[in-house]
């Protein structure tokens, strides 16, 4: 059961990685970043439960706090970039506009 659950966590990580590397709009990149961090939290929780590594739960809380901060910073970066350049896709941004 542990292996199957870890397999699902790796699957979630892969979906997140695909979302980030396919470089669509900002919102879907945020979704993907959250998925990446959630896959890590899932791995930590699964190992804590099945292998008795209870300290991993504390690490999971820490990753969750970082994910929350990352989402707040990310949305603000999106808002500022959109205000300056009017872009909603990273490909639309030109270097001169941001400098």
């Amino acid at each position: 059961m542990f292996s199957i659950e870890m397999f699902f966590a790796i699957g979630l990580f892969t979906i997140g990685l695909y979302g980030v590397s396919s470089g669509r709009d900002f919102l879907r990149i945020f979704f993907s970043l959250e998925m990446l961090l959630n896959a890590v939290i899932m791995m930590l929780a699964t190992t804590a439960h099945h292998l008795g590594m209870t300290e991993n739960i504390v690490l999971a809380y820490m990753v969750m706090i970082l994910a929350t901060l990352e989402a707040a910073a990310g949305v603000l970066i999106f808002a500022v970039t959109n205000k300056i350049t009017g872009a909603v896709i990273p490909d639309e941004i030109e270097r001169e506009e941001l400098s």
């Binding site: 709009d25 900002f26 919102l27 945020f30 979704f31 959250e34 994910a67 929350t68 989402a71 707040a72 949305v75 999106f78 808002a79 959109n82 909603v88």
Partner: peptide, 13 residues
């Protein structure tokens, strides 16, 4: 919390 933050992104997109 985070879904509400994402809703803010929807208002822009």
């Amino acid at each position: 919390g985070i879904v509400v933050l994402m809703l803010f992104g929807v208002t822009i997109i």
